[in-house]
C-alpha cells in the first residue's frame, strides 16, 4: 500500500540531498570568487601604493640635498634686502622708500610723537629704526598718496576693531579722526576705547579734547577731573589747565 504523503516527504528529502553538493559547490565557488576578487583588489592597491611610497622615499632621499641648497640660495635674497636698505639709506629722494614702507606708520610717528611718548615707544617696537628714518627725512611731497592709503587703512582698522574690540586699535582710530578733524568720530572711538579699557591715558585725553572741539567744554572738564581723581595723571592735569585757560590743544 502506498503512503503518498510519506513518499512525498522522502522525495523532498532526496531532492535536497541530491542538490546539496551542487549548492555547496556553487557557494564555495562564489566564496572563492569573492575572496579572489578581494585578494586581487588588495594586491592591486598594495601595488599602487607601494611605488608611491618608494617614489616618496626616493624623493625624500633626493630632496635632502635640495632642501639644503635653498638655505644657501636664501643668502642672496638677504643680500638683496641689505642692498635695498643700503640703497634706501643712500638715496636722497624719498620716492623709492614710499612704496616700500607703509605711510601710515610714518604718519603715526610724525603726529603722535609730540602728544604722547608711549605711542612713540609702541611704534618703535613695531618698526625698525632703519624704516623710520627715511620716513622722517621724507618731505610732504607724497602726502596725498599717504592720505589715500591711510583712508583705505582706517576703514580696514575700523572693521578689525569692530571684530576684535582691541582698545589699542580704538585709540588709534580715535587719534586718527581727531587729527583729521572728525571730532564726532574721535569722541565715539575714544568713548568705546575707554569703555573697553579705562586705564589708557591718551584715550581719555582725546575724548576730552574731542568734547571741547564739539563745544562740550564743561563736560570735558568734568571728565578730566574725574580721570585725574582716579589716575592722578599729569598730562590730564595739564590738559585741564589748558581748558581752564580756554585754549584746547
Amino acid at each position: 500500500m502506498l503512503n503518498i504523503p510519506s513518499l512525498e516527504r522522502r522525495w523532498l528529502k532526496y531532492k535536497i540531498k541530491s542538490y546539496f553538493p551542487y549548492i555547496l559547490f556553487s557557494l564555495l565557488t562564489v566564496i572563492l570568487i569573492i575572496v579572489t576578487t578581494i585578494f586581487i583588489h588588495l594586491e592591486k592597491s598594495n601595488k599602487q601604493t607601494s611605488p608611491i611610497l618608494v617614489k616618496q622615499k626616493a624623493k625624500d632621499i633626493i630632496l635632502q640635498p635640495k632642501d639644503i641648497s635653498p638655505e644657501i640660495i636664501l643668502e642672496p635674497s638677504m643680500q638683496f634686502i641689505e642692498t635695498m636698505t643700503s640703497t634706501v639709506s643712500q638715496s636722497t629722494t624719498p620716492s623709492v622708500s614710499i612704496p616700500v614702507f607703509p605711510p601710515k606708520k610714518v604718519v603715526i610717528v610724525q603726529k603722535i610723537a609730540p602728544i604722547s611718548p608711549p605711542a612713540k615707544i609702541s611704534t618703535n617696537v613695531i618698526t625698525p629704526p632703519s624704516l623710520i628714518t627715511p620716513a622722517i627725512k621724507s618731505t610732504t611731497q607724497p602726502s596725498s598718496i599717504k592720505r589715500d592709503t591711510a583712508t583705505f587703512d582706517i576703514h580696514e582698522i575700523e572693521d578689525r576693531f569692530k571684530n576684535n574690540s582691541n582698545p589699542h586699535l580704538g585709540l588709534y582710530i580715535a587719534r586718527y579722526h581727531y587729527d583729521h578733524g572728525n571730532y564726532n568720530e574721535a569722541y565715539n572711538y575714544a568713548l568705546k576705547t575707554n569703555s573697553i579699557n579705562n586705564t589708557i591715558e591718551e584715550s581719555w585725553l582725546i575724548f576730552a579734547k574731542a568734547m571741547v572741539k564739539l563745544g562740550k567744554i564743561d563736560q570735558a572738564k568734568k571728565t578730566l577731573q574725574l580721570y585725574i581723581s582716579q589716575s592722578n595723571s599729569d598730562a590730564a592735569r595739564n590738559l585741564l589747565d589748558s581748558f581752564e585757560k580756554d585754549v584746547p590743544k
Partner: peptide, 16 residues
C-alpha cells in the same frame, strides 16, 4: 519526473 522518483523511492531504487 517527481512521481517517477517517488516510485523509485518506494521500490528501493532510490535510498531516501
Amino acid at each position: 519526473p517527481k512521481y517517477i522518483e517517488m516510485a523509485a523511492i518506494h521500490t528501493g531504487l532510490i535510498h531516501a
